[in-house]
């Protein structure tokens, strides 16, 4: 403990909350409150209504939510498989550094540019994907693969080789060691990575906005479209739906993780 006197500690905490709450908690509260209002030009929002939610849970909006969920699921699955595969295959091999570098690159490249590059690459034969949902999923997968790869290779580095060696000395071949020992031991990290990939994909806007076809409009684009035409309050309701969905999925994933750890 750095500050020992009680009064000083209180003062520090007060300053902390004064910084933390407005900066981090306020945005959520404000968006949540706005989603229930029709006007806001005082300390509190006015014109309480559930209309925005009625709109946000029906018709177009529910399509957008489904689109986002499907995109995030597909992209996370692709990213997880690719990232895990690369991390496992590169472990202990000389290619490790190169693979690590390649898989970290998508973080460094601006998402908008990733979108542009897919647009440039897949707007012509042989792979004409422009205007399909596939191109959106691919973009998301590219953008989140780095996180999956990084999480898994960090977990692999932390994994005590004694487990694999014990398994091998008991007669387990590489495939059995992978399926029965390594992957189960990596499960907590894999699920954490899956959660992160899913959340990032749910909120992805930069590349999506370059690529989305009219029949595949994810929720963030919908939020942007709403605010862009001035419908801030219904945009807020859509944003709340996005946040709550993401949060629920994260919660479910972390439940799985706790179970995996405490088994």
């Amino acid at each position: 403990m750095l500050v020992h006197s009680r009064r000083a500690r209180r003062a520090v905490h007060a300053v902390f909350l004064a910084l933390f709450l407005p900066v981090f908690a306020l945005p959520f509260l404000v968006v949540a409150a706005a989603s229930l209002a029709t006007r806001w030009s005082g300390i509190l929002p006015a014109g309480v209504t559930l209309d925005h939610y009625r709109a946000a849970t029906g018709g177009d909006a529910i399509d957008a939510l489904t689109t986002s969920l499907l995109t995030a699921l597909a992209a996370s699955a692709l990213a997880l498989v690719t990232g895990t595969w690369a991390a496992l295959a590169a472990k202990g091999s000389r290619a490790r550094r190169v693979v690590g570098l390649l898989f970290m690159l998508p973080v460094a490249v601006p998402s908008v540019v990733v979108g542009l590059s897919l647009l440039v690459a897949f707007s012509r034969p042989p792979l004409l994907l422009n205007g399909t949902s596939t191109i959106v999923v691919l973009a998301h997968a590219v953008l989140v693969t780095s996180f999956a790869h990084q999480a898994v290779s960090a977990a692999l580095d932390r994994l005590d080789p004694a487990y694999e060696q014990a398994a091998a000395s008991l007669g387990a071949g590489p495939v059995r060691v992978l399926l029965r020992v390594r992957l189960p031991l990596l499960l907590p990290s894999l699920s954490a990575a899956a959660g992160l990939c899913f959340a990032l994909s749910m909120g992805e806007l930069s590349a999506t906005i370059m690529l989305y076809p009219p029949d595949w409009v994810p929720l963030p684009v919908k939020v942007f479209a709403a605010t862009d035409r001035g419908a801030l309050f219904s945009g807020a309701a859509l944003a709340v739906v996005l946040m709550v969905t993401t949060f629920l999925v994260l919660l479910a994933v972390s439940r799985i993780r706790t179970r995996a750890v405490h088994r």
């Binding site: 000395s169 008991l170 060691v177």
Partner: peptide, 30 residues
């Protein structure tokens, strides 16, 4: 895995996700 030795190490290296009987059965199944 083709040498057929038994090995016991300092840090035990029991598989934490398996019960005791599954740990002991591991080599037999392998």
């Amino acid at each position: 895995h083709r040498r057929g030795v038994g090995m016991v190490v300092q840090q035990y290296a029991l598989f934490p996700h398996m019960r005791v009987d599954a740990n002991v059965a591991f080599g037999l199944k392998a």
